[in-house]
Computed example of a mutant assay.
Amino acid sequence: MNATTRRATKPAALLGDDWRTRAGCTRNEAELFFPIGGSKTARSQTKKAKQICAGCPVRTECLEWALENRQDEGVLGGLTEDERRALHRRRRRFAFQRKACQHILTNRLEEFLELRARGLELLEIATELGTNVQTVNNVIEQLDARQEVDAA
């Protein structure tokens, strides 16, 4: 592979968007960001790629692009494919909890307040509402924040 071919296969050059032209990876070999396997060499490549990403001015944009486009290979946005999958799962779980909290605040607030007034434990409230304790905690936090705003 000659220098021209390597340059053409770099992630930023291949993809062409404005933010990608400012990416730190454009000044490095593309292979560095796509280590193969779990060998010592691959781990070293991953570490080096992450160091480059850490100082990249468009790391956030790169990571968002990788998550939105379900990129399942290489180090992108400073994360490996496994780390991006874990982040994607956490974001989905958080979005679900946020929707569940909003549902209670919008549609079941009176019922929620009644259950709290009865002195039920969080798990009991969650069971009555068909949700989980984390969602109940989120609702309580939202209500506390509203009270702080109202008091101010």
Rank of each mutant, 00 (worst) to 15 (best):
R59C: 11
R43D: 04
A30N: 06
L67R: 09
N107E: 15
H103F: 14
Q142R: 15
A13I: 11
L87N: 02
D72P: 00
A49N: 08
F94N: 09
R93K: 08
C53Q: 12
Q134N: 11
L14W: 08
L120T: 06
R6S: 09
G55A: 14
L87G: 00
N137Y: 05
R43W: 01
E128T: 13
L115C: 08
C101M: 15
C25A: 02
W19G: 00
M1E: 10
C53M: 14
Q51Y: 02
F112N: 09
G24F: 08
R70M: 04
A42W: 05
G78A: 10
N107I: 08
K40I: 01
A151Q: 12
R20S: 05
K40E: 06
A23S: 12
I140L: 15
T106P: 02
T106E: 10
N2R: 06
A86Q: 07
Q45E: 11
V136G: 09
Q147V: 12
M1R: 12
H103Q: 12
A12Q: 04
L63V: 09
R27T: 12
R98K: 14
L79V: 02
R98F: 03
N2A: 01
K10C: 03
Q147L: 13
L115I: 10
A117T: 07
L63M: 12
V139D: 07
R90W: 02
G24S: 14
L123V: 14
F94T: 09
T131H: 10
R108K: 15
W19Y: 07
R70V: 05
F112P: 09
E121I: 01
R70C: 01
K40F: 00
L105E: 10
R92Y: 01
N69Y: 03
W19V: 03
A30P: 01
W19I: 03
R70F: 04
E111M: 15
L79Q: 08
K50W: 06
L32F: 01
L76G: 00
G38W: 02
R91I: 00
C25H: 01
V58W: 06
T41H: 03
T5E: 14
T9P: 02
L129Q: 13
R20L: 02
E110Q: 12
A66S: 08
V75M: 11
A151P: 04
L122T: 04
N107K: 14
N137E: 11
